[in-house]
Design a protein around this nucleic acid. Structure first.
Ligand SMILES: [Mn+2]
Ligand SMILES: [Mn+2]
Ligand SMILES: [Mn+2]
Ligand SMILES: [Mn+2]
Lengths: 226, 226
DNA sequence: ACAAAATTTTAGACTAATCTAAAAATATAT
DNA sequence: ATATATTTTTAGATTAGTCTAAAATTTTGT
């Protein structure tokens, strides 16, 4: 609609390169990592990287991994913006659970209409974060910077607010639902078990809760400002 | 998401076959007509028809045109249902004009999630008609039957309600906007010019309006029940 | 009824995205 | 340091959807 030049598939590659680069703190993304996340084989990734490099969306030196160019990053951020806005829509307007929305957003993120994205953003009240706590890039392609810590890095008896998750699998999110751990809830680490490094938590200053170390490492929190 | 078996492109062919069959009152659709509406060439259409016939979505005798099978019709109706629901969303929730939504809905109609369609339908209040007055098939794949007449077939001084349009081009819709002819408005034919067969109308029992014969032939109306 | 015109199908080719298998480059481990 | 393992790229095919040009079929007009 707004541009014909970039395919669905190319958008997906650029988005995944962005997210993996972010996860690796700015380091190059490898062919095998991309193959895993695109559900294809390394050979297919190599082909696509050659093509994306030709179009100047990535910087690519054979065998050395890839990094997005400014142009590529802008496309990636546009896709991520749409993905996260649609996730907000699905949860806030249609009443989906945060564990049900990702695959639908994977499709909606490719709908091509600047005007639609703008109106959707306004309709949702210009949200800054998606239902998983991930920041939503603005219409200029700027990603809000956030600095969260893992719950597993927080000292004992420190009150924190739950701000996000670093794993988005339905299984993990449903697990949190069952324990009543939601975005914005209050958490305090009371004790870490010597036996299995599991966590004894206080939820919202009321409820005792036990979670595995695995859970604690995938909860993103912020020191309470109050 | 809900099924992997049918491609974006196949969905479009089935949808267009349905709409053209409807427009031709149930007669077979020809290869050239499909080529025109799919923006491809007759040769490409022939290939696709062979494929769709193989999958039993259409009945196809070479050189004799095509008709949907029950299976094909159900897929077409599902796509049309999504198209029209999204159009309602775009107008009612996002404030788009009825002339701006078709191309966006062309993309959204392929989003594959039964649950999304169901929730969207509920969110919109289970609408029966889209912003152009076209009926929305129900979740069982049943198209509501409507019987409208062209304004050009209505006798003089008969009060009618504007129910739909038989052309959906932005230019036509914007033309109607300028004349303040909207879905649900009241119309009465006061006179038809001998010179150019243009129409002298009374809009909402108040406003005198002159429209071309072309406009009158593309307005769908119903005799007022009051 | 039959020639000419129009429509439709087939043949053969192209592009995007993918695959497997083999070759090349890099990383690792003694 | 050098052999081995791992990763990445290349070579060669495949599939979906499209195209142009040519052949086949149907429709039209006299
Ligand atoms: Mn997601
Ligand atoms: Mn998310
Ligand atoms: Mn439409
Ligand atoms: Mn419509």
């Amino acid at each position: 609609m707004d541009n014909q030049l970039i395919s669905f598939t190319e958008e997906n590659y650029l988005k995944i390169i962005y997210l993996l680069t972010e996860r690796h703190n700015g380091n190059e993304v490898s062919t095998n990592q991309l193959a895993e996340h695109t559900q294809t084989k390394a050979a297919s990734v190599s082909d696509m990287l050659r093509k994306l490099a030709e179009k100047s969306y990535i910087n690519y030196r054979k065998y050395q991994g890839v990094r997005l160019t400014e142009a590529g990053e802008q496309i990636a951020l546009g896709v991520i913006r749409k993905h996260r806005l649609w996730e907000v829509f699905l949860v806030e307007k249609l009443g989906f659970g945060w564990d049900e929305i990702h695959d639908i957003a994977e499709q909606l993120e490719h709908i091509d209409s600047k005007e639609l994205t703008k109106r959707l953003d306004d309709f949702l009240g210009n949200p800054q974060f998606d239902p998983h706590g991930d920041p939503i890039p603005d219409s200029k392609g700027k990603m809000p910077s956030v600095s969260y810590q893992k719950l597993s890095e927080i000292s004992l008896n420190q009150s924190v607010v739950m701000m996000g998750v670093s794993v988005h699998s339905p299984a993990f999110l449903q697990h949190l639902d069952k324990q009543q751990i939601t975005l914005g809830c209050d958490l305090k680490v009371l004790e870490i078990s010597d036996f299995d490094k599991s966590y004894d938590l206080l939820l919202n200053d009321e409820i005792r809760l036990f979670v595995s170390n695995e859970v604690a490492r995938n909860l993103l929190v912020q020191i309470s400002s109050t």
